[in-house]
Computed example of a mutant assay.
Amino acid sequence: MKSPWLIVLLSASFLVTIGLGIRQSMGLFLTPISLEMDTGREVFSFAIAIQNILWGLSSPFFGAISDRIGCWKVAAMGGGFYLAGLLTMAGFVTPGGMIFGNVLFGLGLGSAGMAVTLGAVSKIVPDDKRTLAIGLVTSLGSFGQFALVPITQLLILGYGWQVAMISLSMVGGTIIAVSYGLKAADDSTTAMVAESSLGKTVIHAFQSRDYILLVAGFFVCGLHLVFITTHLPVFLQDNGIHPSIASWSLSLIGLFNIAGAIFFGWIGGKMPKKIPLALIYLARTIIIFAFVSMPITPASAIIFGAAMGFIWLGTIPLTSGLVVTFFGPRYLATLYGVVFLSHQLGSFIGAWLGGRIYDLTGSYDLMWNINLAAGLGAFLIHLIIREKPIPFPTPKMA
């Protein structure tokens, strides 16, 4: 029996696996690239921040395009961006080269990342399986972090960071071919979306108090994730932890997120999604506080990675599920793309401000405290969301 939605699910999982795996490896390049360019940490941190803001800014744009020309075509374009961006960083070892390479990589994440792949999955998966399916894509995507981060570290230590970067570019290029697996999702829908412009869709969404709260809360998710993935390896090394332990801490985030994303995808179909979503932010706050309050040791680094991993991307099936609850699946690629823009604004702050604060103070203490305060704020924001449909006005026929 043919299951076209299963092909879409597996293809989307592969795209997220590669995209997130490479993206989560970027923090491992912070020290060697900064040393080779003879700059402080702020320069490469800023380049990664640009990557994240471009990812966010381009996600609604590519989501809207995918609703019209097809998810697989947009995702294939993203594979080309991955390839070009990583090769640019490997070949042009200057601040300008790093920034331009990260611009291209950010566009790749926007066109072959969560907004487009989750949009494809939502179009073809049955309603009663949608939240769980998104959780499965997210969890399988986490395998990329678990697999690629330690391999990247081995390549950096054994052959140098440029060989590691070129190797990742080859892996990213495989997305061009695999994207065709999303075609069944495009074949399952009609051209209805053409009647409503992106502008009208977004304006309607921003008339909702609850959508605005969701957008604001997802900012904190980006702040947490990208600060940790960018600066945790060097934070641990500053505290005398071997680079291999730092890479394994990031890898365990990916490993434990496999179970966590499935769990939160499942529980999002059993109870109001805002409750586990709020508790994720509270749990992050508690885990970060415990980690930075105690002596930093190899054991604490490993425990931190495992604990954060279980709640790492559990926000995605719950947040996208709330968007579907509000507006239905039809415009998910566009509307989740807008929510994701907020996430990437937080990512920009997490990547850049972490490096800026370190260069100014010689410590990450202030940035950890900012993450703690933001986590508590996000916990409260999600508690007051009203979880109910917000109908989109039906276009009138002439």
Results as ranks from 00 to 15, higher is better:
residue 155 L to K: 07
residue 155 L to V: 02
residue 156 I to D: 11
residue 156 I to M: 13
residue 157 L to V: 12
residue 158 G to C: 05
residue 158 G to R: 00
residue 158 G to A: 06
residue 158 G to S: 13
residue 160 G to M: 09
residue 161 W to C: 03
residue 161 W to A: 08
residue 162 Q to R: 15
residue 162 Q to F: 04
residue 162 Q to E: 13
residue 162 Q to H: 15
residue 163 V to M: 12
residue 163 V to K: 12
residue 163 V to Q: 11
residue 163 V to R: 11
residue 163 V to T: 14
residue 163 V to G: 03
residue 164 A to D: 09
residue 164 A to Q: 06
residue 164 A to C: 13
residue 164 A to W: 09
residue 164 A to Y: 12
residue 164 A to S: 15
residue 166 I to D: 03
residue 169 S to C: 05
residue 170 M to W: 11
residue 170 M to Q: 01
residue 171 V to Q: 05
residue 172 G to R: 01
residue 173 G to A: 12
residue 174 T to E: 02
residue 174 T to C: 00
residue 174 T to N: 03
residue 175 I to C: 00
residue 176 I to A: 05
residue 176 I to H: 02
residue 177 A to M: 11
residue 177 A to I: 14
residue 177 A to N: 01
residue 178 V to E: 01
residue 178 V to F: 14
residue 179 S to M: 03
residue 179 S to D: 05
residue 180 Y to G: 07
residue 181 G to T: 08
residue 181 G to I: 05
residue 181 G to M: 07
residue 182 L to P: 09
residue 182 L to V: 04
residue 182 L to H: 08
residue 183 K to E: 02
residue 183 K to D: 00
residue 184 A to E: 12
residue 185 A to P: 11
residue 185 A to W: 11
residue 185 A to C: 10
residue 185 A to S: 15
residue 185 A to Y: 13
residue 186 D to Y: 15
residue 186 D to M: 06
residue 187 D to I: 01
residue 188 S to N: 06
residue 188 S to A: 14
residue 188 S to F: 05
residue 189 T to G: 09
residue 189 T to M: 13
residue 190 T to C: 04
residue 190 T to Q: 13
residue 190 T to M: 07
residue 190 T to G: 15
residue 191 A to W: 06
residue 191 A to S: 12
residue 192 M to I: 07
residue 192 M to S: 14
residue 192 M to P: 00
residue 194 A to C: 00
residue 194 A to H: 12
residue 194 A to E: 06
residue 194 A to L: 06
residue 194 A to T: 06
residue 195 E to A: 10
residue 197 S to F: 00
residue 197 S to G: 15
residue 198 L to G: 07
residue 199 G to P: 00
